[in-house]
Amino acid sequence: MWRASIVRFAEHGSPSQALQRSAIEAGVGTAEVAFTRHGYVVHLGRSTLRMVAEAGERDNRYFDWASTHYEPHFMGEPDAPAWYAAFLDEFTADVGALTPAALIAACSQYRRQP
């Protein structure tokens, strides 16, 4: 939880680095949650930069950087590209054409068991 003695996220390529360092220096305890390593979340990394580059948003102050830094890094997890590909295959099979109605219909197929 953020508090006044902890610095905020920075606006650059590693936004939480200073925040994490500041939290440790303030004595905030840490625990590893390997949500990317264990495949619970696949973080593409650089998705926003890709959208800026693909849209040709030359008025965006990050356009020059985005035009050469848009490939996903997957947080360095070696299995993540395969997990993402498998997710896309399943998503495409379940949703089909990506429309709001198709997405809602696909999500409605999966209900939590009581």
Rank of each mutant, 00 (worst) to 15 (best):
E77F: 02
A82R: 14
L88P: 02
A93E: 10
D64N: 05
A80T: 06
E57F: 00
L88K: 12
E54A: 03
E77V: 13
M75I: 03
M75F: 06
W65N: 05
Y70W: 15
A93I: 03
H69I: 00
F74E: 08
D89V: 10
D59T: 15
F63I: 00
Y84G: 09
P78W: 05
P72H: 13
T68S: 13
E57N: 04
E77D: 05
G56H: 02
S67C: 06
F63W: 02
P78G: 05
F91D: 08
A82D: 11
W83D: 12
Y62P: 00
W65R: 05
T92L: 07
P81M: 10
A82C: 03
P81Y: 12
F74L: 12
E57V: 00
H69T: 01
A80Y: 09
G76R: 03
A55F: 01
E90I: 07
H73Q: 09
H73R: 08
A93T: 08
A86K: 12
E54G: 02
R61M: 10
W83V: 08
P72A: 15
T92V: 08
F87N: 07
G76E: 04
Y62C: 00
D64Q: 05
H73C: 11
F74D: 06
Y62K: 01
Y84F: 15
V95F: 02
A80E: 06
V95R: 03
Y62M: 02
Y70K: 07
F63V: 00
N60V: 05
P72I: 14
M75T: 04
E77T: 04
A93F: 04
E71Y: 13
Y62F: 08
R58K: 15
D79C: 07
Y84M: 15
L88A: 07
F74P: 01
P78M: 10
D94E: 15
Y62D: 01
P72D: 13
E77Q: 12
S67E: 06
R58P: 03
A93P: 04
D79T: 11
E54N: 05
M75D: 07
G56M: 01
M75C: 07
L88F: 07
D79A: 15
D89A: 13
A53Y: 05
P72K: 14
H73A: 13
P81E: 12
A55E: 08
E54W: 01
A86C: 09
T92Q: 06
D79R: 11
P72T: 11
F63T: 00
W65M: 03
F63P: 00
A53E: 07
L88S: 07
A53Q: 06
W65D: 09
P72L: 14
A85K: 15
R61K: 11
S67Y: 01
R61Y: 10
A93Y: 05
D64H: 02
P81D: 12
E77W: 03
R58T: 15
D94I: 09
A66N: 01
Y84I: 11
M75H: 04
Y70T: 01
S67V: 01
